[in-house]
Design a protein around this nucleic acid. Structure first.
Length: 639
RNA sequence: GCCGCCGUAGCUCAGCUGGUAGAGCACUUCACUCGUAAUGAAGGGGUCCGGGGUUCGAGUCCCCGCGGCGGCUCCA
C-alpha cells in the first residue's frame, strides 16, 4: 500500500501495515516518539492497520491538542486502574479528556467518600502504573462477550453503555482497552503505553449525575490534568493560580466595589464605588438605546398571580419565582420583565404606524436560583437586566434582529470584549410546527449572516416557544457565561392577545423580540472585571483621578484641584491622610486609579499638578487648567 | 437542589494528636510633614458561622442548620 505523508512523500508499505510500521519506516526517532496516527480526520492507535492511499500524519508530543487529549485520556484510564485497586467494589462509568485535562466518574461503594485528601495515595498508585510502562492493548470483542465480562464484574454502568450502543447504533462489536490490571470499554485511541504520561496531577473531586440526568445516580467525578513535561504542568498550575487573582469575587471587595452577605445569598451589596460603576453602565445603555430609537418604561415589581397565569410562567417557572400572599391574593416578584411589558402593550391600541415599539427597562429582577448554582456576580438571585422588548410586525423582524446584533457589537467593542455568538435552535419540548421553526430559525440565521457574524449552532438549546441568539463570554478560568440574548417570541403575544391594526384596517398578531445585550449588569461587571483584571476603562472606573498632597499644608490646594475636576465632570477624590506620598501613591496604584495628581510646594505655588498615570509613572507637571482639560478628554464617557 | 470540601479579628491566614486564641495588613492614638509603590511607636478589636451533643474540659470530636468554594442539573 502507498500512504502519502504531510511533506508530500509517499510511503510504500506492505499490506496490513500499521501506524507503528509507518512511523518506523519514516525513521527510528519518529518510531520512538510516535503516540498515534491521524488518518481520515481520526486519531488512531499506532497498532491499528492503515487505510491505503489516505494521507497520514504521525501524532507525537508536539502535535498539540491531539497529543494532549491522548495522554489525558490515558491518564484517565490509569486513574481508574488505581482507584479500582485502592477501592474494591467501585463502579466505573466514563472518563474522557476535556479542554484542560480529564475526568473519570466513579460510583464508590456505600460509605466511601473521596476527597482531595485521598489524592496523594491515588496519585502514588497511578505513578506506579506510569513507571511500569504498561502498554494499552486494544481488543475488539462481540457485544455478548463484553456484556458477559462487565456483568460478571458488576460494572452496571458499562453494561448500560453497551446496551445503549446496541439500541442506538445497532453495534455488534465493541472495543476494550487494557492497561496493566485494568480493562475498560473504550472507543480509543490511546498512546502505546502509560510511560508517555510525562506529568499528571489530580485536581478536584466533584459530583456529577450519571448521564447528566438529575434524576439519576450522583457519581463522584475526579478531575485531573496531564502534560508531557513537568514544566508544562507547573506552568499550567501557575496560570490557574494567576487566574485566581483576576476572580471578580476577589477583585470586587478589594477595589471597594461590592460585597456579599450570608443574609442575602445571591445578591450583591453595591458599595459607593461599585454603585458608580453600575450607574455609569446603566447611563451608557440609556444613551445608546435612546440613539437607537428605544423608549424607556417602568413597570411594577410585584404582580398578582393572574399575570403569570396569562404569561404561562405560573405553570412553567413558578418554582423560580418568589411568591407571597397578601389579603388572600397570591403575588409574585417579577423574574423577568416580559409579562409586564406585554401587559403594558395590551392596555392600549396599536397601529402598524406605531411599530416597532422598542420598549426598554433596566429592570430589577428576582429569581429563586438553587443555592448550589450561585456564583459571585455571575449567577445571582437579584439582578438588573438591560432588558428591552421590541414589539413589531413579522416583516420587521430581520432588520430588528440585525440592529440588535449591531448594537451588541457596538457595546462590546467599547470594552474590547470578544463575543461568541450561538444560534439556539428548536428544542425537544417545543411549541409550534416545523414550518414555524424553519421560518424563525431562518430569520435569525439571516440576520447573523447579514451582519457578517460568525456563530455556532447550539442544537436544541432554543426556548420552547422560539429560537434565539445568545451572546457568550468566558471568565478568568475559561468558563463560558451567557450575557446577552436576542429571542423571538410568538407565544407571549398570543397569550396576551397582542395585536396591531394594519394598513388593511384588520387586526394582526404582533411579534415580540426579547433582547438584553449586556445581559445583566451584574454578570457583565463580573466578566468585565475578570477580563480587565480590575483595570477598568478610564471613562468607566469609579475614581478617575485622585489628588495626593505631599504634606498636610498642601491639602487645600489639592482640594481645590479636586473641586475643579469635579466641576468638569471628572470623578476625582482627595487623599488627605497624613501619610507619605509614597504611601498614597502605593494605595492609589493598588486601587487601580488611572490618574494621580501629586501636589507639593512647587505645584501649590504655581497652581499646577504633577500627573502620574497608573502603571506608567510620572508623566510631567502641567498647569491645573491644562490638566483638567487633559483629564476630561481621557475620562469622557463614549456614546 | 445534588456530590465533595471549607467557615478563626474588617481582609489574608496560623492554631500538631481536645486544656480555654495568634500574625501580617486594615483601624484608633501619638510622634513625624514627607517629591512618585508601604515612616515609626503604642493601642483597640474575636458569642473561633449558628444550634444541639460527647467530655472534667470543644476553635479542635459527633449531629442538625446557615453560608461559601469546586463541579453536576438549571440559567442572564
Amino acid at each position: 500500500m502507498r500512504v502519502p505523508l504531510p511533506d508530500g512523500n509517499v510511503l510504500d508499505l506492505p499490506d496490513g501495515a500499521t501506524g507503528a510500521d509507518a512511523a518506523a519506516a519514516i525513521g527510528p526517532g519518529l518510531a520512538k516518539a510516535a503516540l498515534a496516527y491521524r488518518q481520515n480526520g481520526a486519531v488512531l492507535d499506532l497498532a491499528r492497520p492503515l487505510a491505503d492511499a489516505e494521507p497520514i500524519e504521525i501524532v507525537t508530543d508536539r502535535s498539540g491538542q491531539d497529543a494532549l487529549d491522548l495522554i489525558r485520556h490515558d491518564t484517565a484510564h490509569v486513574l481508574a486502574a488505581a482507584v479500582m485497586e485502592l477501592y474494591p467494589g467501585v463502579k466505573i462509568s466514563i472518563g474522557p479528556p476535556i479542554e484542560n485535562g480529564f475526568y473519570y466518574d466513579f460510583d464508590f461503594p456505600e460509605g466511601v467518600a473521596i476527597s482531595d485528601a485521598d489524592f496523594p495515595a491515588i496519585e502514588a498508585k497511578m505513578a506506579e502504573h506510569v513507571k511500569a510502562d504498561e502498554p494499552f492493548v486494544r481488543e475488539d470483542v462481540t457485544v455478548d462477550q463484553a456484556l458477559e465480562r462487565f456483568r460478571g464484574e458488576g460494572q452496571d454502568y458499562k453494561v448500560e453503555l453497551i446496551e445503549d450502543l446496541v439500541a442506538s447504533q445497532n453495534v455488534e462489536t465493541v472495543s476494550l482497552y487494557t492497561n496493566g490490571p485494568f480493562t475498560d470499554l473504550c472507543r480509543g485511541p490511546h498512546a502505546p503505553s502509560t510511560k508517555r504520561i510525562g506529568a499528571f496531577k489530580l485536581q478536584s473531586v466533584a459530583g456529577a449525575y450519571w448521564r447528566g440526568d438529575a434524576g439519576r445516580q450522583m457519581l463522584t467525578r475526579i478531575y485531573g490534568t496531564a502534560f508531557f513535561k513537568q514544566k508544562d504542568l507547573d506552568e499550567h498550575l501557575e496560570r490557574l493560580e494567576q487566574a485566581r487573582a483576576r476572580d471578580h469575587r476577589r477583585l470586587g471587595p478589594q477595589l471597594g466595589l461590592f460585597t456579599f452577605s450570608e443574609l442575602s445569598p445571591g445578591a450583591a451589596f453595591w458599595l459607593p464605588k461599585g454603585t458608580t460603576l453600575f450607574n455609569e453602565l446603566v447611563a451608557l445603555n440609556r444613551r445608546m438605546q435612546a440613539q437607537r430609537g428605544y423608549v424607556e418604561v417602568k413597570t411594577p415589581q410585584i404582580y398578582a398571580s393572574q399575570l403569570f397565569e396569562t404569561s404561562g410562567h405560573w405553570g412553567k417557572y413558578k418554582e423560580n419565582i418568589f411568591v407571597s400572599e397578601y389579603e388572600d391574593r397570591e403575588f409574585g416578584l417579577k423574574p423577568m420583565n416580559c409579562p409586564g411589558h406585554c401587559h403594558l402593550y395590551s392596555m392600549q391600541r396599536w397601529s402598524y404606524r406605531d411599530l416597532p415599539f422598542r420598549c426598554a427597562e433596566p429592570g430589577l429582577l428576582h429569581r429563586r436560583e438553587p443555592s448550589g448554582t450561585l456564583h459571585g456576580l455571575l449567577r445571582v438571585r437579584h439582578f438588573v437586566q438591560d432588558d428591552a422588548h421590541i414589539f413589531c410586525r413579522e416583516d420587521q423582524v430581520p432588520d430588528e434582529v440585525a440592529a440588535c446584533l449591531a448594537f451588541a457589537f457596538d457595546i462590546y467593542g467599547l470594552f474590547d470584549l470578544e463575543l461568541h455568538l450561538e444560534l439556539s435552535t428548536r428544542p425537544d419540548n417545543r411549541l409550534g410546527s416545523d414550518e414555524f421553526w424553519d421560518r424563525t430559525e431562518g430569520m435569525l440565521a439571516e440576520a447573523l449572516k447579514a451582519g457578517g457574524h460568525e456563530y455556532r449552532i447550539a442544537e436544541g438549546e432554543g426556548a420552547f416557544y422560539a429560537p434565539k441568539i445568545d451572546l457568550h463570554m468566558t471568565d478568568s478560568l475559561g468558563r463560558s457565561w451567557q450575557l446577552g440574548t436576542v429571542q423571538l417570541d410568538y407565544n407571549l403575544p398570543e397569550r396576551f392577545g397582542l395585536t396591531y391594526t394594519g394598513e388593511d384596517n384588520a387586526e394582526h398578531r404582533t411579534v415580540m423580540i426579547h433582547r438584553a445585550l449586556f445581559g445583566s449588569f451584574e454578570r457583565f461587571i463580573g466578566i468585565l472585571l475578570e477580563h480587565t483584571g480590575g483595570e477598568l476603562p478610564e471613562w468607566l472606573t469609579p475614581v478617575q483621578a485622585i489628588a495626593l498632597p505631599i504634606a498636610d499644608r498642601h491639602n487645600e490646594a489639592a482640594a481645590e484641584a479636586v473641586q475643579t475636576l469635579r466641576a468638569a465632570g471628572v470623578r476625582a477624590d482627595l487623599d488627605e491622610r497624613t501619610e507619605s506620598v509614597g504611601r498614597k501613591i502605593r494605595d492609589a496604584e493598588l486601587q487601580k486609579i488611572p490618574f494621580m495628581l501629586v501636589i507639593g510646594d512647587r505645584e501649590a505655588e504655581s497652581a499646577s499638578v504633577a500627573v502620574r498615570r497608573h502603571g506608567e509613572g510620572d508623566v510631567g507637571t502641567m498647569p491645573l487648567g491644562d490638566a483638567v482639560e487633559w483629564l476630561r478628554e481621557r475620562t469622557e464617557a463614549p456614546a
